[in-house]
Write a protein that binds this DNA or RNA. Structure first.
Lengths: 215, 215
DNA sequence: TATTGTATTATGGTATACAATCATATAACC
DNA sequence: GGTTATATGATTGTATACCATAATACAATA
C-alpha cells in the first residue's frame, strides 16, 4: 500500500497558519479575532476563514461567543494543572511502550533530536526548541503505538504553548531539560520501562511546577 | 450576577444534530457525507454544513479527503484498545478526586442515575442508558474538578459510541454494569479512593474486553 | 455624569457562481 | 475483447454579494 499525498487545500494551509499564529502568541489570549481582518491578512475568503475558526474552536484554541465573534482562548491555572496531570499519565504510558518497541534507529533519532534541542536552547531559539521537543515526544508516542494519545497530547500542548515556551527557557531548565531527555533515551535503550517512566514523570512534574509559578 | 442564556446559533443546533446522527449510527462508519444532502435534510445552507463538518472533522468523527468529500470515520481495533486504555487512566484519576470531593447531594444524584440506567437496560432502551451513563460519569468528573479530562473522555466516547451501545446491551453486562456502578458509588461515599479506583478500573477493563471481542 | 438614542460595525446566515477535481460511463482504438 | 482516451456529471473548493440582527462605540441629552 503506497501512500499518496493528497493536495493540500487552501483551508488546511490557512488553518495551520492561524493555529501557528495563536500558539506562537501573535494573537494574545483574550484578543478578539475579526473575520474580515483575518481574511485580509491571510488573503482568503470568509468561507475559508470561517471553516478554520470552527476547527480551532473545536480544538479549544479559540472561543466563540454567539453574535459577538471569537476570542483567543484563555486558560486558567486549574486547567494548566490538569493538563499537566493528564500529560503525565499519557506520556508515562507512552514512554513505557516506546521502551518496549524502540529499535536502535529510533534511539539514534531521539539522540539527534535531543542534541538539536540542546543547541537551540543554548542559542535561545525557543520556538525551534519547542518544535523539536514536540517532534521528540511524537517519536516516542508513535514508536509506542500510542497514536490516539499523541493526538490528545498535541492538542493539550497547543493550549499551553505559551507556558511551554516560558518553561523551556526558564533558568534551570535549559540544561536540566536536555539532561532529563538523555536519561529517558538511555532508559529506553536499555528497555528499562520503570526507569523511563520515572524520569519522564519527574521531568514533567518539574515542568508543571515551573509553569504553575508562571501562571 | 444573573445568567442569561446565549441564543443558540443555527450552526450549533446543526452541529448537535449531525453529531447525534453519527453517534446514533444513522450514518454508518465509512458512509459518505454529501454536503448538499446534508443541507437539504437539515434545511440549512452549505456554509453552515461545512462549518459543522469542520468541527466534527476536528473531533475525529468524520474524515475529510481533499476534493473527495467526507466519510464517517471508521475505527480500528488498535484505536479502540487505546481509547479504553486512556479512559481507564482518566476515569481512575477522576473517580479518586470525586471520592475526595463528593458530598451527599452528589452521592444521591449518582444513585438516582444508576437507578435509571438499570431501568433502561431492563427495558432495552440502550440509547437512553448510554446517555445516562454519560451523565453519570460527567458528574463524577466534574465533581472531581476534572473538566479538561471530561472533555477528552467525551470526545473519545463519541468515537466508540457504537461499541459502547453494544457493550452495554451485551449479555452479562446488563446486570453486572449497574452492580459495578453501585460499588463505585459506595466507595465514593466512604471516600475510599483506592477501592473506587479499583472497581472503576475493573469495570472499564471488562467493558474493553467485551468491546474487543465485538471488533 | 449617567442615561438614552443612534450610527457603525461584525456576525450569522443564505444564495449563487465558478473553477478544480474526482468518478463514471462512453467512445475510440488496437 | 480488452485497453486506453475522452466526455460527462457530480461534488468539492473557493469567492463574493447580500440581508437581517446583534453588539459596540459614540454622540446627544437630561
Amino acid at each position: 500500500m503506497l501512500k499518496v499525498d493528497r493536495p493540500k487545500t487552501l483551508k488546511e494551509n490557512a488553518l495551520e497558519s492561524l493555529r501557528d499564529a495563536i500558539t506562537s502568541d501573535v494573537f494574545k489570549p483574550g484578543e478578539r479575532l475579526v473575520e474580515r481582518n483575518l481574511c485580509e491578512s491571510m488573503g482568503v475568503s470568509r468561507t475559508v476563514v470561517r471553516e478554520c475558526i470552527r476547527h480551532l474552536e473545536s480544538e479549544r484554541l479559540i472561543v466563540g461567543i454567539p453574535n459577538a465573534g471569537f476570542v483567543v482562548a484563555t486558560i486558567s491555572g486549574d486547567e494548566v494543572k490538569e493538563i499537566y496531570d493528564i500529560r503525565i499519565m499519557l506520556e508515562c504510558s507512552a514512554v513505557r511502550s516506546c521502551a518496549l518497541n524502540a529499535d536502535e534507529a529510533v534511539v539514534k533519532e531521539l539522540h539527534q533530536l535531543r542534541e538539536k534541542i540542546a543547541n537551540c536552547l543554548q542559542n535561545e531559539d525557543i520556538m525551534q526548541a519547542l518544535k523539536l521537543t514536540t517532534a521528540f515526544y511524537k517519536l516516542i508516542f508513535t514508536t509506542g503505538g500510542k497514536h490516539v494519545a499523541w493526538d490528545l497530547v498535541e492538542r493539550l500542548n497547543a493550549r499551553i504553548s505559551r507556558l511551554r515556551a516560558l518553561t523551556l527557557s526558564s533558568a534551570g531548565r535549559k540544561t536540566k531539560g536536555p539532561d532529563n531527555l538523555l536519561n529517558i533515551i538511555n532508559a529506553i535503550e536499555q528497555k528499562d520501562t520503570d526507569r523511563a517512566e520515572e524520569i519522564c514523570k519527574k521531568h514533567l512534574t518539574e515542568a508543571a511546577e515551573i509553569a504553575s509559578k508562571l501562571t
